[in-house]
Structures are given as structure tokens and as C-alpha cells.
Amino acid sequence: MNLTPVWISIQLATVTVVVLLALGTPLAWWLAVTRSRWRVPIDALVALPLVLPPTVLGFYLLTLLGPQGPIGGPWFKVTGQTLTFSFSGLVIASVIYSLPFVVQPLRDAFRAVGEGPMEAAATLGARPLDAFFTVACPLAGRGFLTAVVLGFAHTLGEFGAVLMVGGSIPGETRVVAIAIYEHVETLEYGAAHTLSAGLLVFSFLVLFVVYALNRRSRPGVTG
């Protein structure tokens, strides 16, 4: 059986989580502490992928990232490659699709940490960024764990958006979920079973671990 789709899925999920941590951490911190009137609309925007059908997301991304689109066009001019039906395009789609699964746990964890410890760090001479990495982030540790696990698992499980943006190019954009779909279409139930069961067990284990960790005592934030 061809395991390349599994490998692509894992690559995609890893890259997506790394990108999401880099972008999502500052965004989550901002959402946690800001008093700006933009907080609520941005919060809603971040949560959109939770409720939108993946096809809606996929359709807009296809339009934006296509060779004539406002993002895909310049990209094509600079790199000579299209964003749609490529791994890079998949990453962009996955980042947007999994955004709430990373940003929301981080935001809630930062909110639980609160500004108290950061203020204390500042009075002890810690610069803002120093305090952020040495105090806020470690105190939000469990939020990071949840974010990474959920972001990774959710990216593995995506289908609609990926299919519309990436298609199903073997070895390039054919991820596990799409491979399963095509196995079923071509009546290869054995292969579909193997991949499906694998994904099922993996997803269950991931969620089990997350819930088990969150059930334990809250991160050491004292009152």
C-alpha cells in the first residue's frame, strides 16, 4: 500500500503547526490582553473556520491563490510557480483552516496567566519580550501543548479545503483524507480501511492525551 499520503499529511501538519505557533502566539497574546475595540471582530474572524463549510474557505482560497488571484498572481510572477495545487498552497489553506485550534487555547491560557506576573517581571527589570518568553509563555505551557496537539490533529483531518486548493496530486498534495476518499471511489475498501482506522486511532489518542492533561491540576497559576 502506498503510504506517501500519510507522510505528506504529517509534513503538512508539522509545517502548519510551526507556522501557526509563530503567527498565532502574538495574535493570541494580543487577543488576551488588548482593550482595543478591534478585539471582538478579530476574535470572531479567528473563529470563522470553526463554522464555515470547508468548501467556502476552499473556494475563496482558490480565488485568492489562483494564478490570476491577488495573492497567487504576484506569487507566480516572483517564483514562477502556482500556489494552487502545490504544497505551499496547502500550507496556507491549512494555516487558515486550523487557526482557531491554535489561537483559542493559547488565548485562553494567556488570559488565565493574566497581566499580574508580567507586571511583576517588569518591576524586576525584565523587558517586555523577555518577560513574555520567561514568564507568560512558561505559565501558559499547557495552553501551548493543547494548541500544538489540536492544531496538528486538525490539520491531519482536513479534507474539503485541501481538496479545493490542492487537488489530489500524488506525492505533492494528496493527503491521507483525500487518499481515503479516492480509495473509496475506486472501491479499494481494504486500503481505505487501513488509512481510516489509522487516522481514527491516532485522533482518539491525541484527544485522549489532551483531555487527560487538562483534567489534571490547572497550570500553576496561583490566586
Binding site: G116, T123, R127, G223
Partner: peptide, 27 residues
């Protein structure tokens, strides 16, 4: 704040929960 160096001791202490007492002092 970090350049004023006013040692503010908060009523709720605000010790860093992820660090031991020794590490809090070292911080």
C-alpha cells in the same frame, strides 16, 4: 517600568508559579 527599577511588592506577592523560590530570586 523595567527601567525605573522601583521594587514593587504586590499584596498578592505575584511570585512566578513555574519557578522555585531560588529561581524566583535569581530571576
Amino acid at each position: 517600568v523595567h527601567r525605573r527599577r522601583a521594587g514593587l511588592v504586590f499584596q498578592d506577592t505575584r511570585l512566578f508559579a513555574h519557578l522555585s523560590v531560588r529561581q524566583n530570586l535569581a530571576y
